[in-house]
Write a protein that binds this DNA or RNA. Structure first.
Length: 311
DNA sequence: AATGACGCCAACCGCCTCTGG
DNA sequence: ACCAGAGGCGGTTGGCGTCAT
């Protein structure tokens, strides 16, 4: 090193910006079929005009089957705070303790919510505030924030924590055992293992117009499907075995994926004409084959977050 | 209804680390 | 031991949605 690094790809020839559903589908299908042994070569092999790094990020942060979305639970938030307190901005390390969460997501939630909370918590601790349940500032990630992190003042402490905040306050602090575990045999990344406990609920604030999915309505079938897919998971036992896969799993998985991506003709997914989810014929082809160009270069962008999709 | 401010988050960038030759 | 290539990581940013005025 020291001579300067050659760019990972020709920046002038790669597509940037939000991923289209067709690109997502193509990347997913390629990885499912061939794995991702070489990210740099993957976009060319998959017929994507993307940088390998971009493909990797998209897969890890969004398309990976075990990625968990929705608001962070108070438990998760507390874990992040505790871990950050211990190890700092080691997002991937922190992510390894939050199954299904990505380092990027954790980083975002820290920067937008938890940093603020941690600052105030620290402040209240030094100010000897008697009971945090009555006067400390607790701001959940699902809360509404109209003030910038940069300008938040001590006087802006929230007086009455809501139910969720109270729940957070009851959480036990990180103990020494947790730290020992952290510093010893921790996995190196959140996606190193797919053998994690399933989330109890997707914590989405109904007040924000999002969907709250209680435990009993979580798509258990989906998680079970993922379990059945474990042998196919690229991060488990090396690579996807491709042709040896059960074709039934492929079909189910792709149907789910298509539904998630808004690619199906399902009326449930097509709520309005203004919906950004593309509805053109190229998106209605459930059997879009890898290798057949969907012409994504001229496709409209789609909402890149599940939040926008109302998932 | 229009518009500006702010918050959120997906994605990019560049450096660091790891690994194989 | 050295080097180059590839993956990984953390910081940053741009675009979009929401809210306040």
């Amino acid at each position: 090193m020291g001579k300067g690094r050659a760019p990972c790809c020709d920046k002038s020839k790669v597509k940037k910006g939000p991923w289209s559903p067709a690109e997502d589908l193509r990347l997913t299908s390629f990885i499912q079929e061939h794995g991702h042994s070489n990210w740099r070569a993957l976009p060319r092999q998959a017929g994507l005009s993307r940088c390998g790094k971009s493909c990797r990020l998209r897969w890890i942060n969004y398309l990976r089957p075990d990625v968990r979305r929705g608001n962070f639970t108070p438990e998760e938030e507390q874990t992040i705070i505790n871990l950050h307190n211990s190890i700092g901005n080691k997002w991937s390390k922190i992510a390894s303790y939050l199954p299904g969460r990505t380092d990027n997501e954790i980083k975002n939630v820290w920067n937008t919510h938890l940093k603020k909370r941690a600052l105030i918590t620290k402040k209240t601790a030094t100010d000897e505030i008697p009971s945090c349940t009555s006067s400390s500032s607790i701001i959940t990630s699902s809360g509404d924030h109209t003030k910038s992190d940069k300008v938040i003042q001590e006087s802006e402490v929230i007086e009455k924590p809501n139910e969720k905040q109270t729940e957070f306050l009851k959480l036990k602090p990180f103990n020494n055992h947790d730290l020992e575990t952290l510093t010893s045999d921790s996995p190196t990344s959140s996606y190193a293992s797919s053998n994690f406990s399933r989330p109890n609920a997707i914590d989405i604030d109904p007040d924000k117009g999002k969907i709250e999915i209680p435990l009993d309505s979580v798509d258990i079938d989906f998680w079970e499907l993922l379990d059945s897919l474990d042998p196919l998971h690229p991060d488990k036992a090396g690579e996807i075995n491709g042709p040896n896969q059960d074709p039934g799993i492929d079909i189910e998985w792709f149907r789910f994926l298509e539904k998630e991506l808004g690619l199906t003709n399902d009326a449930d997914n097509l709520t309005s004409e203004e919906n950004l989810v593309p509805t053109g014929p190229q998106f209605q082809d459930k059997n879009l084959e890898p290798g057949i160009s969907p012409g994504f270069d001229c496709l409209p962008m789609w909402p890149s977050s599940h939040q926008n999709l109302g998932v």
